[in-house]
Design a protein around this nucleic acid. Sequence first.
DNA 1: CCTCATGGCTATTGACGTTAGCCATATTGG
DNA 2: CCAATATGGCTAACGTCAATAGCCATGAGG
Lengths: 187, 187
Amino acid sequence: MPTPERTTLPAVVAAARAIVEEHGSEGLTMQAVAQRVGVRAPSLYKRVASRDALVGLVVESTLTDLTLELEAAERGADEPRAALVAIAQALRTFALAHPACYAVALGPLPAASRPAHELLVTSSAPVLRATSAVVGSADALAAARTVTAWATGFLAMELSGAFRLGGEVGPAFDYGIALLADALAAR
Amino acid sequence: MPTPERTTLPAVVAAARAIVEEHGSEGLTMQAVAQRVGVRAPSLYKRVASRDALVGLVVESTLTDLTLELEAAERGADEPRAALVAIAQALRTFALAHPACYAVALGPLPAASRPAHELLVTSSAPVLRATSAVVGSADALAAARTVTAWATGFLAMELSGAFRLGGEVGPAFDYGIALLADALAAR
DNA sequence: CCTCATGGCTATTGACGTTAGCCATATTGG
DNA sequence: CCAATATGGCTAACGTCAATAGCCATGAGG
């Protein structure tokens, strides 16, 4: 190859993730990323089609990491109901550890930033398996959607500071997942 | 007052809401709003401190309308569990009727766009009353948070088209609210 | 009638994404 | 060993957008 490359696509994505985590998603400017990898902003377009596409790569990278955590939580449980609870708690742990990247990955995204469909399938697989084991395959999808909707809604509220009306947040999460798990098990 | 006013703050907010609904929140530029009310963009700053502040007014306006719908749904039910279901369904109806404004109002917001705390209290009051009637005042807050988290999470997913994996969405919503209502009633 | 507070306007700035076009270089094929 | 070429980086520039500065016109109140 001509002209030695001063950076790489993975380095660009890693820089983008770091910037998102440090300064929020609105701090993710092409200039900031370029400066971080030691290059000028226009050069980034040799690696990435647009800013939205870069956001999409951040989302995919984050989602990949998250999926590993969810699968680990699933493996660590010996019983379906416990797996459901463990997966939910792993999701919250991840969200609190990487709040900005989590918010970007699971928040509203422009079409050009949406991750590959296949990645969404693999990241939702653990929940689907767990609910399937609890309620049976017929209702598994609806049950998984219920749990996922609750968890992402809860975490969106927690991360955006919507829980300003007193009460501890951790116990409220436990309350919710226990309620859902019991309700599903009762079917 | 000097120099007859060519527009008013309510007109500006109404224009902003219409633009959000027609072209999405990213279409809400100061130029677009100004053109719609028959004024030049800089003149808007005589009425509104910033774009974020204008978004905040759109949010408050939307939330006010939503609250009326939730209260109407609450009044229309004669039993606590039915009230909970009716409120959830009213929320979904509103979200589907005004998807873009709903998404703005209940999505992540910069600090300068956050609605007044008091408004959040009044808009969450119906759910809180309903859960209180179902599970008692001790668990009412946690229960309300669970239902709210689920509903907003579900609608965020539905509006962003995250339900691409087959299955009808409406029945999934019914499944979820029934599951939650039953679970709360069983306590 | 004169004053002045006020709303609107033009011009401008600064940030940002993105494109155009040039230059330098390392690899490849003769 | 050398030239051709493909490629990565750069500077310059454009368009969009939010926001500010400063001027002008107007109309209500003394």
